[in-house]
Computed example of a mutant assay.
Amino acid sequence: MTTQYESLFQRFRRTQLLEGPTPIQRLHRLEHVLGTGVRLFVKRDDLMGLGGGGNKLRKLEFLLGEAIEQGCDTFITTGGLQSNHARLSAASAARAGLACELILTEVVPRTDVAYRRNGNILLDEIFGARIHLLDGMENALYFADERAEVLKKEGRRPYVVGAGGSSPVGCLGYAACATEIAEQELAIDGGFAHIVLANGSSGTHAGLAAGFTAMGMDTARVRSYAVLNTAEKTQKTTRDLASATLSLIDTTKSIAPNTIDVVGNQLGDGYGIPTPAMLSAVRTMARTEGLLLDPVYTGKAFAGLLSEVNSGAHRDGDAILLLMTGGLPGLFAYQPAFEDALRVS
């Protein structure tokens, strides 16, 4: 399948950051504990060697490719204080020999030392990124564009991309991943009934939707859980971004109406704010499969999936794929939240 659709991406400059396809693993122990008859699988996009791994590397392959093709020497991007995208941008830029500047905004109401100094932001500094810290009211992308103008006057050649690397070019990473999943699921009896993931800046869901549409496959089976904005806003952003990404791949096709499935019941009080369901879900995955989920993205998506499975929303024998997008360093930034939860577990 992947070979058949390689031509979709050949015209785009790509910087190799992955060592190959990430594995899909079956969660046998979790299935046994749940006892529902639903087959559960996880795609290990956390298993990437560069920078601690994670889904943003797929986007960065195309973003850095474009930056290098344009002769840029500085990669500028935005994100929250504990942004996984920022961490992997810093690591990838270091690998590619580019300078990296991160415009980080304090968007999560946490002031504890673990959140402000541990996790991703610690690694940003280790990877050599220059960090500009803004308060939650400032426009990070506007600041990034202004910073780029300053660098241009100094003779530098900056490349700017917004939060999550979720531009149409960045989304090509998950359009390509859709072809990877399509090939891997040939080994799964009946294929995947649903593919479940978290949705923040919408680039991962949008890329998958564009990729599956380009291959003529079912886009509606991709279900994401909104973790940044409301489901309604996230759905619109995802649909628009998927359409823009698809237009880069194949102008003869379009995203079919009502095929972008976004659920909003795991957002809780907002982005990056722990929920009891997420804390429980992270413990469940750790204690059944020995796998660690991040608290901001996949932890909330897995909480949603557990709720679906336990409520009987899926049929006996259905195969469900959870996209594990990485973000492990975030666990260390949320140490106080997990410590409090463990006291009562």
Rank of each mutant, 00 (worst) to 15 (best):
A176S: 08
A214M: 13
C177E: 14
L197M: 15
M278I: 09
I260E: 08
L197F: 05
Y271L: 14
A242P: 04
E232I: 09
V196A: 04
S243K: 05
G173R: 01
A163I: 09
G211W: 15
A176W: 03
A187Y: 07
H194F: 08
S280Y: 12
V227A: 06
R223W: 03
T252K: 07
S202R: 07
A209T: 11
Y225K: 10
T234E: 08
F192D: 06
G203S: 03
G264I: 10
Q184K: 08
A176G: 06
T251P: 11
K236W: 03
V196C: 12
A244C: 01
T238Q: 05
G165D: 00
L228R: 04
L208G: 10
L267D: 10
G191E: 02
T204K: 09
T245G: 06
S202Q: 05
A163K: 11
D218I: 05
A242N: 06
T234G: 04
T204S: 15
T275H: 08
G216C: 14
K253T: 08
T234Y: 02
S166N: 05
G190T: 01
F212T: 02
A209Q: 00
G207R: 09
M217K: 13
V263R: 14
P276C: 12
K233C: 09
F192Y: 15
R221P: 11
G211A: 12
L246Y: 01
K236N: 03
E183K: 13
G191N: 11
G270K: 05
P168W: 00
T275N: 00
G272W: 11
E185T: 11
K233R: 11
T259K: 00
N258E: 15
A277Q: 13
C171W: 04
V227T: 00
T259S: 14
G190A: 12
G270N: 05
S201V: 08
A176H: 01
N229F: 15
A206R: 05
